[in-house]
Design a protein around this nucleic acid. Structure first.
Lengths: 341, 341
DNA sequence: ACGTTTAACGAAAACGGTTTCGTGTTAATA
DNA sequence: TATTAACACGAAACCGTTTTCGTTAAACGT
């Protein structure tokens, strides 16, 4: 099979007995070049399907039209929707999206960023790995911003780095959920969460406490289950449900919520009659669970679009590179079958 | 804030009063350069954290170490696991992954591929959009292979293009499922699928028929529901369940399966006692559904790893560029609560 | 008829590397 | 002492563009 080698300006120039610069200008329809020459060159280019080499252009312009996205995990509905949002906006602005997974590991996050920071991308959009948040080390981010590479953090952010951010109001989300549970008459609202090193967990705990306080309900340790990671520890959840005997549960993610619902049933109680359940991260599971799970929707796609917008505006210099904003999206409570009025 | 501009060979050369070539060689530990000079240069480079510019290297080597992944949709557990598999392998080989979404649209698929094909990537991994399969037009793929860009197709493939492929044996998957249902005594095994233009649906239908034939069961049109797209049409599924009255159902994806289970219950029948259900695409939904859904596992991660391996071997010339293989992964039936022995 | 504008194009530098091929210096060899 | 090899380094081409700045020749003005 004969390979149709990509044609370059040089080829065209030689074939048409003109200089490379003339070809370049002709293809850009420059006024400098005569009608005749332009037509000849453009026709030839069309015929051989000339397309400029992106890499060469990147080198020249010092702009790649690539944006690097570094996320902890892609097999996770929330991140996946964010990526889609990023893609949507980026695509329409003719940017490509390079996705790297940190796998919740600090080291991988660092390696990936260093790899991309050496010219491969014009800017970063990222969500911190749990490893990084636990280590509380943001040197690699600092390096990137010091090099003048725009950075937008989303969802799992840190205030130790000055950059644009987009988050949902996690505290508000938890607050809304708990308020909803309390005002429908629930007395013992439990919380299934992870330990505080994850920024989002911390804030959700705050919202939980705030709602309790507002309703004059005392915070009780036994009603809060803090799991050490996102792993589903059925035993601990089951024990928690049995011992604390909540009449409502807010879970910090979908899976804990779904699992809790199943365990509740196994223990002979009913959702939502005996126990209401609300989960964070409104994804497919919440939608299709049985009973379907009321959830705090985090608007991942919007978050992605917003992050991409902020990033690209910085990249293209449309926005002051010294001033940063944090966009806070308001979460929405989606009522389904796991809560009762 | 003082920007730490990226340092280049030129900077180092000027600072140390040597030539650029000397710096380049010294940093590669070339024998050509004296101990002293090398140490001096390397120390300086380390001090200023010199990292070569990827773009410049790409231009020189005509190799980007990027691979382009074009998939129909990212908010889909199966594709997401494939990406993870690709990432795993690619990362370990120091390749980056550029993800583009075709959104099931032919046009977007074409645009994305053309964009990436102009030097941005060393090869493609892709799964065809439904738009493309419906249009049955593979010109853009042909172009790419004619330019000598390696291409690996996965899952949704076509035999109109000669390239490496990795798929699961969809026919076998359906066959295994239906065989399982029939041998546990079911008589009226229904199939909820999509129309045949999707290559996978077609093959799954074949497996369904094959199992029926083997058990001497006659194929009945009324037991097969072909939806026009992947949209969940509850009404049609409900009607199908009521009218065809199957005692077992194989669904061509997770969502149809989950939905069917719910509708079955709504109609007053029980899973798995009255009706067994098996779904394709073993994802979170199947795992966490209630009852949990028996499923055909498609080994997305392995598929991704395999695709990445095949691609990178082609890219690096380790494998003959003229000969292509199709790797067929065997699907696994995962038994859960939605089937009864 | 002479200087000046203008049109149309080419040469060359630049982006940041890699690599081949000198070249000058010194040390070893005949 | 003349020759040569080894050593250490630099010049320059190259990857494929873009862009600035000539340069040439024709057209123009007076």
């Amino acid at each position: 099979m004969a390979l149709k080698q990509k044609i370059t300006l040089k080829h065209i120039a030689k074939e048409l007995n003109v200089s490379i610069s003339t070809v370049s200008k002709a293809l850009k329809n420059s006024e400098e070049i005569s009608r005749d020459t332009k037509e000849k060159i453009q026709a030839f280019a069309r015929l051989y399907n000339y397309k400029p080499n992106n890499i060469a252009i990147s080198l020249k312009n010092k702009r790649t039209k690539n944006i690097g996205v570094v996320i902890p995990d892609i097999v996770h509905h929330f991140f996946t929707t964010v990526i889609r949002g990023i893609e949507q906006y980026a695509n329409q602005k003719e940017y490509n999206v390079i996705v790297c997974l940190s796998d919740e590991s600090f080291d991988k996050e660092v390696i990936n960023m260093e790899m991309l920071a050496n010219g491969s991308i014009d800017g970063f959009i990222m969500s911190l790995s749990s490893g990084t948040q636990r280590k509380n080390d943001y040197e690699h981010l600092q390096q990137v911003v010091e090099q003048g590479i725009p950075l937008v953090l989303f969802d799992r952010v840190t205030d130790q780095i000055a950059c644009d951010k987009v988050v949902i109001d996690d505290q508000m989300g938890a607050y809304k959920a708990v308020k909803r549970l309390l005002s429908s008459g629930r007395k013992r609202v439990g919380l299934i969460t992870t330990e505080d090193y994850l920024s989002v967990s911390y804030k959700r705990n705050l919202g939980y406490e705030k709602a309790l306080a507002e309703f004059g309900v005392e915070y009780q340790d036994e009603l809060v289950l803090k799991l050490p990671s996102m792993e589903v520890d059925e035993q601990r959840i089951a024990d928690f449900l049995k011992n604390a005997r909540p009449d409502a549960v807010l879970s910090v993610n979908e899976i804990f919520g779904i699992t809790a619902m199943r365990l509740i049933r196994d223990q002979g109680r009913k959702v939502p009659n005996d126990i209401s359940v609300i989960g964070f991260t409104d994804g497919l599971l919440s939608q299709y669970a049985n009973p379907s799970l009321s959830a705090i929707r985090q608007h991942g796609e919007e978050m992605g679009r917003e992050a991409a917008k902020m990033l690209i505006e910085k990249v293209e210099g449309l926005t002051d590179s010294e001033s940063f904003v944090t966009k806070i999206l308001e979460p929405t409570l989606i009522e389904r079958d796991s809560t009762i009025n």
